[in-house]
Structure formats: C-alpha cells, structure tokens
Amino acid sequence: MHIYKFSLYLLTLILSTNMLVAQTADEIINKTLENMGGTTKLNAIKTITQEGKVDMGQGREAPIKRYIIPNKALRNEFSLQGQTMVTTIEGNAGWAIRPFGGNKNAEPLPEEDVKTTQFEWDITGGLLNYAQNGSTAEYLGTDDFEGTDVYVVRLTLKTGQIIYHYIDTETYQTLKKVTKVKLGDKEQRNEETYSNFEKTDYGIVVPHSIGEQVTITKTLINQPIDDNLFKMPAKK
C-alpha cells in the first residue's frame, strides 16, 4: 500500500513538474498567442487605437494617444500642459514634434529612434508569425520576475534585432520585454514591463498598465485611422 501510494505521489510530482518544464520555444509562444486572443483574431487586426495617461506624480496626469497600423505605422501622442508631443513612424522613416522647448515644427526622426519605436507597432512583440517573418526563437529557461516565475524566450529578428520575452508560467502573458537593437556602433537596450491585462471587445487581451506610470484606458481594434496622421506636417 505504501509503495503504491509513494509511486503515485512520485508520478504526480514528475508529471506536474513536467508541465512546468516541458516546453519548447514554440510551445510557449503558441500558448502565449492563444492567451492573447488567438492567431486568427490577431492576424485580422488592421488598426489599433489606444488612449491612456501617464502618471506625472502628485496627482498630475498627462494624456496619451496611440495609433497603430500593425508592422506598418505608429503614432504616439503625449500631452503636457496642453502641448502635445508627437512621435510617428511609417515604414523605415519617422518624424517628431517636440513642442515643450518652444519648437512646434516637425523634425525627422533619427534612425536610432525609428528602429526602437518600430518594436511598438507589433503588439505581440514579434511573436505572431515569427517563423514566417524570418525570426528565430529560443527558449532560455525560467527566471524570476518580481517574485513570479517566468519563461524566457529570445526572438532574433531577421534584421538582427533581439526581443526577450519574460512570460508568466501560469498565465502565459508577457510580463516584461527586453529589446536590443544594434545601430552602427551602438547597441540600444530597452526594457518594458506589463500588467493589468484586459480583454478588449474585439477579443484580444492587451496590457493596460505599462511600466509603473502608464495606464491605457481604451483599446479599440479596427477603427478607421486617418492616413494623414502619419504624414509629416509642413513647417509653420
């Protein structure tokens, strides 16, 4: 009786540990995409429109807006004291308006900023269709993120850029992303954390907290977006 019970416990242990460790990069990525809403829904996204705010401390908030045409164009707006900073990319070029110092004209965006901003126009962080896109994925093992167990998956894009996903082992949500992009001489490394995952009406799940200060209040999928939003305005 004892032996029987013991080996059952042992078997359970083996099987349950297996379920934590089993994974290949593919398995983890598939589960993550599934939890995000599934590849069908994700592939059918044509536009993303988001609104939100940045906590500036002591009760002050700065409204933000974001317009995304997945993998094609992105526009970020950030407003302070009624003035709006705009950062836009379309393809491999971009422009920005940085009004706070008094300059209201749009200036072209340096290549470095274009490349790092491009990470944002794929809300799956490179996971969706990664193989078809020429990216390779590698499972690096488990790690700890703020007390939570995560899987670490490294995506190497065709362009050489690297994205690390720290994926919650229980919920299969990306809690942190580290992006690395080499620009000539320099390597630019960025980190971003995610929480407060919400299901949109459309049916995909997006994080509504980014870092510790950014809150997204609205995410709309497939709303029409005026193309002109991405075009660099003429000088004043």
Binding site: Q58, R60, E146, T148
Partner: peptide
C-alpha cells in the same frame, strides 16, 4: 491630496513619495 500608482510585485513593494 492625490493618488499615485502602486507597484504590483509579489512580496515587498516600496513606493517612493516625494
């Protein structure tokens, strides 16, 4: 007075207030 975002980590959280 006002509110501010708190952190969400498992374990001890420390939020600075100026």
């Amino acid at each position: 007075l006002y509110d501010m975002p708190g952190t969400k980590r498992k374990g001890i959280n420390v939020v600075d207030w100026n």
